[in-house]
Structures are given as structure tokens and as C-alpha cells.
């Protein structure tokens, strides 16, 4: 039975109709349309649907096997004592209980929170400042953009290697620079009080260019006319920044904030390479604890439980920021 898709056909037919692709009657000419568009026949729509499924099939299959399945599997594992080799017994909530009783977990959580609390605001403020300085036509713009972006494209492992040498207590550029102003023998990565700040500094240095680039893209969406109006009203630069630029960039700021938040809670590479979590666990992070539990002591169930706790933290943090951070500003 051939049902005219534009009238009561399958849902995709009506969607096509709603988008104005389908004309009510065969052969009808629409005056506002640039060219006559014939109504797709039923077989054409079926062909399109089949093609649609075939086109998304490979990607969907890979997602199903390598993302969806692992998430479900992780949920199950977190209730077992799976150790890769011998056991896989149901242990109920005892993994979660063990996580909350683990002193190292709390230490790692504390470190991760400190890392997040400092690296995000510093990185965002500096990124915004750079974008404001560069949001104009000037000489050397391409050079500046490249210079600030090079750390972003380099691998965290590689730049951590370089910073290990720069931070060397005896021959490093950084510690010798401090010696020049009278501070002797500063050991950036070996001193428990300095290790985390040093890692934060390297991380900000690494991500700064990305924040700058996104803010630059956001600034291009701010219309000039608003600034002209503000100037006519006698607003000075600082007032324009506070009352116009910052509120108008709110969606960009929100985007950077949430993505940085997710990234910060997952900090691992630089810690793994630069300090290995030390000295005295001063820089160990949640992901490093997960890594150690899973791939050093092969306590997969415990590691899975810890990763779900991390997931919960990230989710709650994202939801809170979504709740309070998403203010839509309309000035037009």
C-alpha cells in the first residue's frame, strides 16, 4: 500500500514535510522556492533511511562496543573483586566502602581539588587577558597565536620531560633563576610544598593557548556596535570590559569552564611523568590512584569503584556549574 509520505507517512516523512522539502501536491510549484522540488517517492525515502542506517552503523557499532559496553561493564566490576587472573566474585558495596576508608583516596581527592581550584581560574583569567590583548588587527598576530598555541599541540609527556630539566634543583633554568635573586637550592618537584604548585604552573602554561583561542573565537561574536554605544555613553575601558565583554562572553566562559573542569579532574600524564605522585604523595591524583589500583595491584573492582566515584564528582560539579553558570545574556 502506497501512502503518500507527506500526508500520513512515516515520521521521517513528516519531518521532511515540516522542513518544507515536501510539497503538498505533486507537480505543485512553490513561489518562494528557487526551483521546483519533486516530492521524494516512497522508495526514495526508504533508500535514504537505509543509507542513513548504513552510514551511522560503523560509528555506532564502535561506540556500542568500546564506550557503552565498557560503562556497563565498569558498573558491574565495581561490585566484584575481579583481579584479571583468578577471582571475579560479587562483593556488593564493599569496594565503595573501601574507597571511602582509603586514606590515599582522600589525599588524592584533596590534591585533585587543589589542582582544579588553582589551575582553572588562573588559566581562564590569563587566557581571557591574552585574547583581549590580541583581539585586533596588529603586526605579529600570527606569531603570537602560534607561540601561545605551541604548548597546546605538544604532548603532555614531552613537555613534562622538558620541565623536569628546567626544574632541576642543581642545573635547571628555573632554580638557577631563583638563585640569581638569592633563593638557593629550590627543588620545585622534590619539595612537597612546591611540587603541586609547579605541576599547576606547567599545566596552566600548557592549556593557556587553548583558552586564548576559544576566547578569541568568542570575542569575534561580540558586535562592535555595542562598544560604540558604550563609548558614546562615556563608559571607560574597564566598565566596557565588566559590563559588556565579560557578560557577553558568558557562554564561552561556561564552555571553557566545564571542559576544563572535566579535564582537571582527570589530570594524570604530567603527574605520572614529572613526580610519579610524590614526594610523599603530595601530587598523587585520583586518576593516578585508579591507574595504580588497576594496573599495578590489579584490583580492578576497586579501581572501577573509584572511577565511578570520580564520575559522580565530575557529574555533580558539571551540574552545579550548569545550574549557576548558564546565564544567557541578550543585549540586542
Amino acid at each position: 500500500m502506497a501512502v503518500a509520505p507527506s500526508e500520513q507517512g512515516p515520521p521521517w516523512g513528516s519531518a521532511a514535510a515540516a522542513e518544507g522539502r515536501v510539497l503538498p501536491f505533486p507537480g505543485q510549484r512553490r513561489t518562494d522556492a528557487p526551483a521546483p522540488v519533486p516530492r521524494p517517492s516512497y522508495s526514495q525515502e526508504r533508500q535514504q533511511a537505509v543509507a542513513g542506517y548504513l552510514f551511522v552503523a560503523p560509528a555506532t557499532a564502535i561506540f556500542a562496543v568500546f564506550t557503552l559496553l565498557p560503562v556497563l561493564y565498569a558498573a558491574y566490576l565495581s561490585f566484584t573483586n575481579y583481579d584479571v587472573f583468578t577471582r571475579q566474585d560479587w562483593v556488593g558495596l564493599s569496594n565503595y566502602q573501601a574507597v571511602f576508608e582509603d586514606e590515599l583516596f582522600w589525599r588524592a581527592l584533596q590534591n585533585t581539588l587543589v589542582y582544579t581550584a588553582f589551575s582553572i581560574p588562573i588559566g581562564m583569567l590569563l587566557g581571557l587577558g591574552l585574547a583581549l590583548l590580541m583581539n585586533r588587527q596588529m603586526k605579529g598576530l600570527g606569531f603570537y597565536r602560534t607561540a601561545y598555541y605551541v604548548p597546546v599541540v605538544s604532548s603532555m609527556v614531552a613537555v613534562s620531560m622538558i620541565w623536569i630539566q628546567l626544574f632541576d634543583p642543581l642545573y635547571g633554568v628555573a632554580s638557577q633563576g631563583l638563585e640569581a635573586i638569592g633563593l638557593r637550592g629550590v627543588d620545585f618537584l622534590g619539595d612537597p610544598a612546591l611540587a603541586m604548585p609547579s605541576i599547576i604552573a606547567v599545566s596552566v602554561w600548557k592549556v593557556l593557548g587553548w583558552n586564548m583561542l576559544i576566547y578569541l573565537a568568542g570575542l569575534q561574536g561580540v558586535p562592535d556596535s555595542l562598544y560604540e554605544a558604550a563609548r558614546i555613553d562615556g563608559a571607560n575601558g574597564w566598565q566596557q570590559l565588566r559590563k559588556l565583554t565579560v557578560p557577553l562572553l558568558a557562554p564561552t566562559t561556561f564552555f571553557i569552564f566545564v571542559t576544563s573542569l572535566i579535564g582537571a579532574f582527570q589530570v594524570f600524564d604530567q603527574v605520572y611523568v614529572m613526580t610519579g605522585g610524590g614526594p610523599a604523595n603530595a601530587t598523587t591524583t585520583l586518576v593516578q590512584q585508579i591507574y595504580n589500583a588497576a594496573f599495578k595491584s590489579f584490583d580492578m573492582g576497586y579501581a572501577a569503584a573509584m572511577s565511578f566515584v570520580l564520575f559522580g564528582i565530575v557529574l555533580v560539579a558539571s551540574l552545579i556549574s550548569q545550574r549557576y553558570g548558564r546565564s544567557e545574556v541578550e543585549y540586542q
Partner: peptide
């Protein structure tokens, strides 16, 4: 391309962005 379930599938794909990598890496 119009095909049934397109919206649901797309939302599912997007949702995978929110899952932290660490949750999936062990399984």
C-alpha cells in the same frame, strides 16, 4: 538523511562525551 531513530541515536552519541575516560578504560 532522514531515518527513524535518528535523534535518539545522535543524543546517545553525544552523551558518550560526558563519560570520563577513566570509567571506561579498565573494562
Amino acid at each position: 538523511l532522514a531515518f527513524p531513530g535518528r535523534r535518539v541515536l545522535f543524543v546517545l552519541v553525544l552523551a558518550t562525551l560526558m563519560v570520563p575516560y577513566q570509567v571506561t578504560i579498565i573494562p
